[in-house]
Design a protein around this nucleic acid. Structure first.
Length: 523
DNA sequence: TTTAAGTGATGCTCTGATCG
DNA sequence: CGATCAGAGCATCACTTAAA
């Protein structure tokens, strides 16, 4: 009779619970004396005729499916086989549990080690890994918070808190802060000649789908250390600057929290996968570097064992400064304490490394300006990302949002005397035009609210920029939007800031910071 | 880096049951 | 009796992992 194998299989599943393909096959061979190959075909056909359920298209290790009956609960089985049968799934599950049940998309692609740019690699993509997790009921549909995709564990696997938006916001904020730190760390590597000059870059929280050879890395650079580059010129005449191909330096950065084992294994996997498609190695060697603040013992041992260069923030910048950086991350932009800011800057300058911290100073200045807004009664956000319907993206330093209006503030923490340029067009970076014509139009489009643009610098504006700003400031459209106290103008330079501070006691620290840490460079 | 082995999918032939 | 069809058995494919 044709149905005999079907009955046997269902019987086996009833007795043993959900089984992997190999397990079910083994039982069927034992029970019915069929050959292994035949048993495979039998199971496959029964699966297609829907005699029982399977996890298809989700395959676990060895490309195996799990077969089960409608009344079975897959969770126990998945948990049981995870450690040995699906390292990727297991790693992500671990990460989800340890990171409060959610992962930002760029965290997800890091830990899953999935391909973010499928045109560059044929390995399994992050989207596919996500879809597998979804089919297994481990995660839910992707949720977007301020245009950043977030992977959320399903309630069955991880009982979730009511509102994630606040937690997502803090994590996003920390990660964009880290971007600045990463840039400083890369500069430090450059200063030691470990990586090449001007061809390294750091990824933004928004660039979650931009890969290096298809894979996401927090930062990428090239090293031109002797022995780690390839050149076509065999004789001694080659020019050092040209005709050299450097070895890639791939950077993993976990500064916003304790670095854990799944971070390291994810990184190892990405480095492995990246090397996989390289058919000819051309003498290039990958240099894996991991920036951490603190690290679990377990993760540390693994990284050491594998041979990953570990750079602790405190090793590079000293304990005192590393602690200050930690504090800076924890600052609530709605309640900024200027006292704390100046103490952080004190630590920076006492570390003897204040020259290395272009970004850090700028970041502190952002907070300082935020505290001026706080003082005027505004609860602000720092470093918000926007993306309009046309796909244009931008970041805004300080944002206050009301029911019908938004104050968008661009901040440049320049030293005294350094000029903010007007810029030829909206594409010119760090220019007045870019902010007023590009950033503000994106924010207006996204929010649909009236945008009040403010530009603040601790330096000065160039003359043509002042002309441009003055014209805007006096326009009929802008006049009624400005406030009596602050902001009463759409632009503040160093002088205007000091005027605003006046002799008020509450601005004592502000004045000190401005005078001490944003003074003219004596060259 | 290469090789071997394991997985599900697919396509082919053979067998036996059923139907007009 | 022949036609038809589902199931069984086998070989092979593409893909991946683990071992050599």
């Amino acid at each position: 009779m044709g149905k005999k194998y079907k009955e046997s299989c269902i019987e086996i599943l009833k007795e043993k619970g959900p089984l992997l393909g190999s397990e079910l096959r083994k039982h069927l061979v034992e029970r019915r004396g069929v050959t292994e190959g035949n048993a495979r075909a039998i199971i496959n056909r029964l699966k297609n005729s829907e005699a029982f359920l399977s996890t298809d298209p989700v395959k676990l290790k060895y490309q195996e499916l799990i077969y089960y009956l409608p009344f079975h609960d897959l969770r126990a089985k998945l948990k049981l086989i995870m450690p040995e049968h699906s390292v990727t799934l297991n790693r992500i599950y671990q990460a989800l549990v340890e990171e409060d049940g959610f992962l930002l998309w760029n965290e997800f692609v890091k830990i899953s080690a999935g391909v973010v740019d499928p045109s560059q690699s044929t390995r399994k993509s992050a989207i596919n890994i996500f879809n597998d997790l979804k089919s297994l009921g481990i995660v839910e549909e992707i949720i977007h918070y301020e245009h950043i995709p977030v992977v959320v564990a399903s309630k069955k696997w991880f009982p979730r808190k009511e509102d994630l938006s606040i937690e997502v916001k803090t994590r996003t904020k920390k990660l964009s802060f880290n971007k600045g730190l990463n840039e400083d760390l890369l500069k430090w590597l450059e200063s030691m000649n470990l990586i090449g000059w001007e061809n390294s870059y750091v990824r933004d929280v928004q660039d979650f789908n931009v890969g290096y050879n298809g894979f996401y890395f927090d930062a990428v650079g090239y090293t031109y250390l002797w022995g780690l580059y390839r050149t076509n010129q065999k004789d001694e005449l080659f020019e050092p600057a040209r005709n050299k191909a450097g070895s890639p330096v791939l950077v993993e950065s976990i500064l916003h929290r304790n670095a854990k084992r799944h971070d390291i294994t994810g990184f190892i996997n990405r480095v492995d996968n990246y090397r996989g498609p390289l058919k000819s190695n051309n003498n290039l060697k990958v240099i894996p570097i991991c920036f951490v603040n603190t690290m679990e013992k377990d993760a540390y041992n693994l990284a050491r064992e594998r041979g990953i260069l570990i750079m602790k923030l405190s090793d590079v910048f000293g304990t005192k400064l590393a602690d200050s950086l930690q504090e800076l991350q924890e600052i609530d932009p709605e309640k900024v304490d200027p006292q704390k800011l100046s103490s952080i800057l004190d630590n920076v300058s006492n570390s003897g490394r204040d020259g290395d911290f272009g970004n850090l100073k700028g970041y502190v200045f952002n907070f300082l300006v935020a505290s001026i807004f706080n003082d005027a009664g505004y609860k602000t956000n720092i470093g918000l990302h926007y993306k309009d319907s046309e796909g244009r993206k931008c970041e805004c330093d300080i944002v206050y949002e009301d029911v019908d209006e938004i104050i968008a503030c661009e901040v440049k923490g320049y030293d005294e005397g350094k000029e903010v340029k007007l810029g030829e067009n909206e594409r010119e970076p760090d220019s007045v035009k870019k902010f007023f014509e590009r950033t503000c139009s994106i924010i207006q489009k996204v929010s649909g609210k009236t945008v009040i643009p403010i530009f603040i610098t601790s330096g000065t504006f160039s003359q043509d920029a002042i002309n441009y700003l003055e014209k805007k400031n006096n326009s009929k459209r802008m006049k009624p939007l400005l406030k009596h106290n602050f902001p009463s103008s759409i632009y503040y330079d160093r002088k205007a800031l000091l005027e605003h501070f006046g002799n008020k006691r509450k601005f004592k620290e502000h004045k000190r910071v401005l005078k001490e840490y944003f003074k003219q460079k004596n060259k």
